[in-house]
Design a protein around this nucleic acid. Structure first.
Length: 859
RNA sequence: GGACGAUUGGCUCAGCGGUAGAGCACCACAUUGACAUUGUGGGGGUCACUGGUUCGAUCCCAGUAUCGUCCA
């Protein structure tokens, strides 16, 4: 079993172990889940990165957390499936390929639809999906045999199926509405594909009409006035009551338009009178519907003025704005101007072009019943959002959702399965069906998020009732950044509940934050503070990056990241490496049963006790998605408890060759520690564990159970005492300028349970236990360590230290005295608190006495 | 305008109704023996402000200020 034991290299170099280990895992098929397994399933579907994407630090965080959970559950005996894949990313991908064509002076129209789509597939085959290889660098334990792509045949079948089902239930409809339009991408966008930015625009007040029959409207979009169909005021506004129902002259086009009254108008905004441009503004559209205001279209799909019959036709919308205002000024119709006027303006999330509200015929999903179900699933606890503070945001969104515009005027994506007959008949063609002869298909494709919304089951083979669907749906946990709660999570909830008979797509939604720079600033290209996870992996290893990200990940909170932090994690990895080397040099082993507890030293019992507590605490933290705290716990156990104290206190035993029990205990501690750390730091733990134990792999090894019988408060108290003694003597030596390497005679004057560890302490403290005449002493409570400083004692340093300790003790004393003399405290505080303070006061009092006495001898 | 969050040592962040914590940074000492990607010791905070509840508040409540994010 241990035939395969190897030596550890003197130095830890991540780059030499990571590649081969990942290959080993893949070759062995450890990550491939078995749908036929009897084990309880644990499923995560990856938030599919864009096929155009590269691994950025946000992916690294997201995937680290998913891998932690997957590896944890796999070791805990679940049939763990982490399903990888990619999103076809409609606009983004089309843009990439169009850009390539543009370099050759071509547009997609030169190629035609079929050729263009072929080109995109070629691009995907050649340079798409780079992120998949990069995920391997991170160590992701995904099941590559199930890799999915939203444009795969099966996933496309899922799209057709759900489209038809929604349509048949009246939940998909076609309508002429104001939608968000990108004049550069030439497509409709959904609300969430629009990003609002504060832009410096202008706010001008224009007089419509003349004399008595005039009204001043304020607008940020003067160029659209040629499309006005009315002026609206609030019904209760006394300034305009007399004008409601009359008409005014619309300048530039010299058309008479009515003045209407509508509650939507805010009388306190601007002049309290607004122009109603029904075809170019969503609010105006609503008012127009209520008041029968005509729709006047004055712009084409490129955002160029058209059809106004004025000199402005053919001008870009922004040029037209300037020209229109200039013309109005010439006509003496500008009453006031404010420039710059900062206000929120929508931009295309893909290309940043200012979005143009446009009247257009599009396909929509009727969301009310779907959104209600999505909200209810969380409200009634079937689905949990972690951390729960983020749930209000979710509700706010699903409860106030507009119908979802799903048609996109693109070529790359799932083509809308609607065919039109010669007499405008509409037929939806489901999977396996064909359109009637003579019908033509709708040219548009579906919003990318339409197929992403099916991801938790389309990837498992739905609409077929596959073994995977049966075994792995619903998924267990969805891990993603809170920034795509709306984009994606809410939509998966809507479609999942709808398609899967009310079974939500996941049990728990775990939301993490964004990775920011070392000062907590958002990373952006313009700031120049974007970091590349692959560079960090090259430099410090995947484990160091993963540990850093996990350690920084508090639920739902952003984290700052600096290269120094990653270097720190690399140092931690190095520490583990060196500690293991030391352990192996000193005969640590996992062979044979653990020695009976009674036979162990307090130091061995102590480390087992700490290990047991760490195991349960750490496991519970991981299971509740508290990655930062989990990492903190394991880090301090490994570095402080194990390396700084246990190994140090055991050195004397190892050196004396009388350490069989400790060798076995240490072997057990390392074995357990590597298992615990494996989900976060898979590479180094695998390397160390397999080398140390000679066993095959940690990936499928069993997760440790905390041994509650190992918890030993007595040994913990004793070792705490030893630690205090050692720290005080070290401090004394430091104060006295005794070099750390210099051996000095020493003697412990203490009870037997302490002196039993005199040699262990002496080894750590570089003390020689022999007969000598003490020239100095360190007192720790009732315990005394006598020392022989060959020179004279530095009285000044010693007095300074004692005086400092005295001040601290006196302060503590006073705090305790104040409390104990407070009647209210004595009457109402719990007895345990009172007892604790009394105890503290007694100890402090003794300290003061001791220190005072020592000071007296130093005069 | 609405929602949520934050304000704790130089920086980034945990935490908690009962004498303030971590990592990094800082200061001093140490380099033949797991590890300088290190060890040891040390310095450093009236926990944003104002009220309230409480025997006791950094923690709970209310308000204020500043900052951040999302939504409109």
């Amino acid at each position: 079993m241990s035939s395969d034991k190897r030596e550890l290299a003197a130095a830890f170099t991540p780059s030499t172990i990571e590649g081969p280990l990942y290959k080993k895992w893949i070759d062995a098929g450890y990550f491939t889940a078995d749908a036929k397994s009897k084990k309880e399933p644990f499923t995560i579907v990856i938030p599919p990165p864009n096929v155009t994407g590269n691994l950025h630090i946000g992916h690294a965080l997201d995937q680290t957390l998913q891998d932690c959970l997957t590896r944890l559950k796999r070791m805990q005996g679940f049939e763990a499936l982490w399903l990888p894949g990619m999103d076809h990313a409609g606009i983004a991908t089309q843009n990439v390929v169009e850009k390539q064509l543009a370099q050759k002076g071509l547009s997609r129209h030169d190629l035609g639809r079929e050729e263009f789509v072929k080109k995109v597939w070629e691009w995907k085959a050649e340079s798409g999906g780079q992120i998949l290889g990069q995920m391997k660098r991170l160590g992701d334990s995904v099941d590559w045999s199930r890799e999915a792509f939203t444009m795969d045949e099966n996933l496309s079948q899922a799209v057709l199926t759900i489209f038809k089902k929604l349509f048949d239930q009246g939940l998909i409809y076609r309508a002429e509405r104001i939608i968000n339009w990108c004049p550069r991408c030439l497509t409709a966008l959904s609300d969430i594909e629009v990003e609002h930015q504060d832009d410096a625009g202008e706010f001008v007040s224009v007089r419509y009409g003349d004399g008595e029959q005039s009204i001043v409207v304020a607008t940020t979009r003067a160029e659209t006035m040629m499309g006005d169909g009315a002026v609206a005021v609030h019904p209760d506004d006394p300034r305009y009551k007399h004008l409601v129902g009359t008409e005014v002259l619309l300048p530039l086009v010299n058309r008479m338009i009515p003045i209407i009254a509508d509650e939507l108008v805010d009388p306190d905004f601007g002049t309290g009178a607004v122009k109603v441009t029904a075809a170019h503004d969503p609010n105006d559209f609503e008012m127009a519907m209520r008041h029968n205001v005509p729709f006047v279209v004055i712009m084409n799909e490129h955002g160029v003025m058209a059809g106004t019959g004025t000199e402005f036709d053919g001008m870009d919308r922004f040029d037209a704005r300037v020209a229109v205002v200039a013309k109005l000024k010439e006509l003496g119709r500008i009453v006031a101007e404010k420039r710059p006027y900062i206000h929120a303006v929508g931009h295309c999330s893909r290309c940043d072009t200012t979005v143009e509200p446009r009247l257009s015929k599009q396909w929509f999903v009727k969301v009310d019943s779907l959104a209600k179900a999505a909200g209810d699933a969380v409200r009634d606890g079937r689905v949990k959002i972690e951390p729960e503070e983020l749930a209000p945001r979710y509700f706010d969104w699903v409860d106030n959702l507009n119908d979802w515009c799903i048609s996109r005027q693109l070529w790359w994506g799932h083509r809308i399965p609607v065919w039109y007959g010669p007499n405008d008949e509409v037929v939806v063609v489901g999977p396996g069906e064909t359109a009637p002869a003579g019908y033509t298909q709708d040219p548009d494709v579906l919003d990318t998020w339409f197929s992403s919304a099916l991801w938790p089951f389309s990837t498992l083979g739905w609409p077929n009732n596959t073994d995977d669907v049966k075994k792995f749906y619903p998924t267990s946990v969805l891990v993603t950044g809170y920034d795509i709660l709306f984009f994606w999570v809410a939509r998966m909830m809507m479609f999942g509940l709808f398609a899967m008979d009310g079974v939500a797509p996941f049990h728990t939604i775990v939301l993490h934050g964004l990775v920011r720079d070392q000062f907590g600033k958002k990373m952006s290209k313009s700031r120049g503070n974007v970091v590349d996870p692959l560079e960090f992996i090259d430099k410090y290893g995947a484990d160091a990056l993963r540990f850093t990200l996990a350690r920084g990940s508090n639920p739902g909170k952003d984290q700052a990241l600096a290269e120094d932090w990653i270097a720190g994690s690399r140092n931690f990895a190095t520490k583990l490496w060196n500690a293991t080397r030391f352990a192996m040099m000193n005969g640590a082993t996992i062979e044979g049963p653990l020695p009976a507890t009674e036979s162990l030293s307090a130091i061995d019992k102590w480390v087992l006790s700490r290990l047991s507590q760490t195991t349960s605490e750490y496991t519970a933290l991981l299971e509740s998605y508290e990655f930062a705290r989990a990492c903190e716990v394991i880090y301090h156990f490994a570095w402080d408890d194990l390396c700084d104290w246990y190994l140090e206190l055991s050195k004397e035993a190892f050196a004396s060759g009388n350490a069989a029990a400790s060798q076995r205990v240490l072997g057990h501690v390392l074995d357990t520690l590597f298992r615990l750390l494996h989900p976060v730091m898979p590479f180094i733990t695998e390397e160390l564990w397999t080398t140390f134990t000679g066993l095959e792999t940690l990936v499928t090894a069993q997760w440790p159970n905390p041994e509650s019988k190992d918890v030993d408060t007595k040994s913990e108290a004793l070792v705490a005492e030893l630690q205090k003694i050692i720290t005080e003597v070290r401090r004394f030596r430091n104060d006295q300028g005794v070099k750390p390497s210099q051996k000095i005679p020493g003697k412990f004057v203490a009870p037997a349970d302490i002196t039993a560890y005199a040699s262990a302490m002496a080894f750590v403290l570089k003390l020689e236990l022999k007969e000598f005449t003490p020239s100095a002493s360190v007192e720790i409570g009732s315990i005394k360590v006598e020392l022989d400083l060959s020179g004279t004692v530095d009285v000044v340093a010693e007095r300074a230290r004692l005086e400092k300790d005295l001040v601290t003790a006196q302060k503590d004393m006073k705090t305790a005295e104040v409390k104990l003399s407070n009647e209210g405290f004595m009457a109402k505080a719990p007895a345990s608190v009172v007892a604790e303070i009394k105890e503290r006061m007694a100890a402090t009092s003794a300290d003061i006495e001791r220190i005072t006495a020592q000071l007296a001898t130093l005069k």
